[in-house]
């Protein structure tokens, strides 16, 4: 019921989405950096929305904090880390590559590889079981045997 599910939550959290003019940084480069970081941070209250998309009050606060960090000279990684330290790596929409997420990151490639290998093996093995075609000499012999 995909979108009919439509958003009982969104009623509370969404429509007037996201960044307000007053939040924006005057420097367009820094503002673009802030947007990029906030697009990859998950809103902790409304779930499954980035703080860039959400108009939940706490998303607003986090956007403002991100911009303060960036204005204060923090790098992208530092600004992001400021929030991760408080809310955990859960807020990263792109999960970090670590032991626990190894299957998540390697899974897709492994599945494609496994599928390809399985298909190759199956097709190759089947071909072996196909009788090799007769040589012209053999064909001639068969013909004489069958058609005396």
């Amino acid at each position: 019921m995909v979108r009919t599910a439509l958003l009982l939550l969104l009623v509370v959290t969404a429509p007037a989405a996201a960044v307000l003019p007053a939040e924006q940084l005057a420097d367009p480069v820094k503002e673009a950096r802030a947007r990029a970081i906030s697009r990859d941070l998950r809103c902790v209250q409304c779930q499954n929305q980035s703080i860039d998309d959400s108009d939940a009050p706490i998303a607003h606060d986090l956007r403002v904090i991100l911009r303060e960090r960036i204005s204060a000279g923090a790098t992208d990684a530092e600004a992001q880390d400021y929030i991760v330290r408080r809310y955990g790596s859960y807020v990263l929409l792109k999960p970090p590559l670590e032991a626990a997420t190894l299957p998540l990151w390697l899974g897709p490639a492994a599945i494609v590889g496994l599928g390809a290998v399985a298909a190759f093996v199956t097709i190759a093995r089947r071909r072996e079981t196909t009788p090799t075609p007769l040589t012209p000499a053999e064909t001639a012999r068969v013909d004489t045997l069958l058609d005396p």
Binding site: V44, Q45, P57, D61, L62, I65, R86, G88
Partner: peptide, 13 residues
């Protein structure tokens, strides 16, 4: 009032 301590505490609601 500005919720900053809440954020330092990792409050979500």
């Amino acid at each position: 009032a500005d919720g900053r301590i809440g954020i330092d505490l990792g409050v979500t609601g």
